[in-house]
Structures are given as structure tokens and as C-alpha cells.
């Protein structure tokens, strides 16, 4: 990285995406990006970021895998489940985000630095030569 700072590569947001920017503490076993504690999925044997966990879960999903633990608030719809344990909020939201994007073709606004991890996904950003990316960082190979 140009800045030399070790920042989390996961994206915050649902309707728009931006860099997490918290200090990274570890690397994801699957995508090998550096991530912070909050964006690490709660797993025992592996270190997997919440975005990889969400992709894995969606790939494995047909209508299986009912949500564990928390009571489901909505009935038979497509809204997110109520998260009762706040520790689960980030991983659950990442999972719901992935599913929502895939099911509805929603393309979030991209307000983050370049990340090849998201290259296969549709998102919207302003394509212009004289962009004013604040620190200009994050466009190299990560």
C-alpha cells in the first residue's frame, strides 16, 4: 500500500459501500485481504472475513440453513432477520447484503478505494479522469 497503513479491506455500508478503514489485525484465509476484528466472521478453525463468509453461505444456499438462535421477526418475506446478539450484527448484515444484491441486482454506490475482490460485482461509480480521490491510495495491487 502506498500509505503504508495496514487497514481493513472490508466494505462498510449497504446501499453505498465505503472502506472500513479500521486497523487490520489479521488476514482472511480465503481472500487473503487484511481485515479488522469486526469484519472477521466468528469461526473456530479458520479466519474468514464476513464478505467471504457471506459468499460461501450464498453459494451453499438453496433454501436451506435457517438462521440460528435469534427469533425471526419477519414472516415469510425477504427482510433481514432481527439480530438479537449485537456481536452477530456485522456478519449477518454482510450475509443479507450479499443475498439482497444477488437476488435483486442492486448495484451499490462505490465510495471506496479500488478492490479487485469486488470486480465481479455490479456497482456504480463516477467514471471521470479528474476524480478527486482524497489520498489517491489503494489503486495499486493489494
Amino acid at each position: 500500500m502506498t500509505t503504508g497503513l495496514d487497514r481493513c479491506a472490508c466494505k462498510r455500508g449497504f446501499f453505498t459501500l465505503r472502506d472500513c478503514d479500521r486497523p487490520a489485525t489479521t488476514a482472511c484465509d480465503l481472500c487473503s485481504r487484511r481485515v479488522c476484528d469486526e469484519h472477521l466472521a466468528p469461526r473456530v478453525q479458520a479466519r474468514v472475513c464476513v464478505e467471504c463468509a457471506a459468499r460461501q453461505a450464498e453459494e451453499a444456499t438453496t433454501p436451506s440453513e435457517p438462521p440460528t438462535g435469534a427469533p425471526v421477526v419477519h414472516r415469510g418475506g425477504h427482510g433481514p432477520e432481527a439480530v438479537v446478539d449485537p456481536e452477530q450484527a456485522t456478519v449477518r448484515t454482510a450475509r443479507y447484503r450479499r443475498r439482497y444484491y444477488d437476488d435483486h441486482g442492486y448495484e451499490p454506490m462505490w465510495w471506496a478505494s479500488h478492490d479487485s475482490y469486488w470486480a465481479g460485482d455490479g456497482y456504480r461509480w463516477h467514471d471521470d479522469d479528474d476524480f478527486d480521490d482524497d489520498d489517491g491510495g489503494g489503486f495499486g495491487d493489494s
Binding site: 446501499f15 453505498t16 465505503r18 472502506d19 421477526v73 419477519h74 414472516r75 415469510g76 418475506g77 425477504h78 427482510g79 433481514p80 439482497y100 435483486h104 442492486y106 451499490p108 454506490m109 462505490w110 465510495w111 471506496a112 478505494s113 456504480r124 461509480w125 463516477h126 467514471d127 471521470d128 476524480f131 478527486d132 480521490d133 482524497d134 489520498d135 489503494g138
Partner: peptide, 26 residues
């Protein structure tokens, strides 16, 4: 109970009616 997905859809639709006009890191 009412499905909270309705509100998610409405927000997503609203974001569907605009495009970014500049490139910036938030």
C-alpha cells in the same frame, strides 16, 4: 408483523434513481 424488506426495497429504489457525480473516497 410486517416484513422489514419493504423498507429495504424502498431505500434501494430511491438509490436507483440517482448516480454518483464524482469519484471520492468517503
Amino acid at each position: 408483523a410486517i416484513d422489514s424488506g419493504h423498507l429495504v426495497d424502498l431505500l434501494a429504489r430511491a438509490y436507483g434513481r440517482v448516480e454518483p457525480v464524482r469519484r471520492k473516497k468517503l
